[in-house]
């Protein structure tokens, strides 16, 4: 059975992204083991001479290393991903590179109609940066709008159409994980770049 790490993109107690990830953990329990991981408690990313990475981020990196893929649930703050999630991704690419070539599925919920569409687009760009170079499931937007009304008392998605759509995407993601395993031609190059990457001189091949 596949193992996935699901990152809750926000720290608020009322997060509907957390609800969505918990729903996925329950619904796909037969197909995958999903570990819902909180980002709350992570400090804002900061560079230091010692390249210090907080323990919480290291633990997270270990979990991701040991997993087959990552699911990120993001809300949208000011047309973009929360600073906390951005911070987590910065820690996860600061001397450590657990997301390198790791299959990633993005989901997002929002209180309004748009379902975090702009945040998801930015997140894709971010995950594609040389320091992260994750492999994101293409053509797979799952935007859950009006998320406050989307779940029933048991935490299940009320809309059968939405549930079906998510089922389809998750099946795709399972196949994508297997597929990604075979995409190893550029892996070596990515690893090499990551190893030599330094934000202090920006030597990442595509920048210099």
């Amino acid at each position: 059975m596949k193992k996935f790490v699901a990152l809750v993109g926000t720290n608020t107690v009322k997060s509907t992204n957390r609800k969505l990830l918990q729903y996925m953990k329950k619904r796909y329990a037969d197909e995958a083991e999903i570990d819902v991981v909180e980002l709350k408690g992570l400090p804002i990313f900061k560079k230091t001479k010692e390249a210090f990475v907080p323990q919480q981020a290291r633990d997270m990196a270990d979990k991701i290393d040991a997993s087959d893929g990552v699911i990120i649930g993001t809300p949208e703050y000011d047309h973009s991903i929360p600073a906390l999630l951005s911070s987590a991704l910065a820690w996860l690419s600061y001397g450590i590179h657990p997301l390198m070539d790791k299959p990633v599925m993005i989901v997002g919920t929002s209180y309004g109609t748009l379902g975090a569409s702009r945040a998801q687009a930015q997140l894709r760009q971010i995950l594609d940066s040389p320091e992260l170079k994750a492999t994101v499931l293409p053509s797979s937007e799952f935007l859950l709008g009006h998320s406050l009304q989307a779940f029933d008392d048991k935490g299940d998605l009320k809309s059968a159409t939405e549930a079906q759509k998510l089922d389809g995407l998750f099946d795709d993601f399972l196949d994508f994980v297997d597929l990604t395993d075979q995409l190893d031609h550029s892996k070596k190059l990515h690893e090499q770049q990551a190893a030599t990457f330094s934000w202090d001189n920006g030597t990442t091949g595509d920048d210099k």
Binding site: I44, F45, K46, Y77, D78, S80, P82, A83, L84, S86, S87, L89, A90, S93, Q122, Q125, I126, D128, S129, E131, L132, W199
Partner: peptide, 18 residues
């Protein structure tokens, strides 16, 4: 630019201010 985006510290401030 960090990870092709604004540093989290900058975004964090903007979140407080919105």
């Amino acid at each position: 630019e960090h990870n092709h985006t604004v540093p989290a510290a900058m975004k964090n401030v903007i979140e407080w201010l919105s």
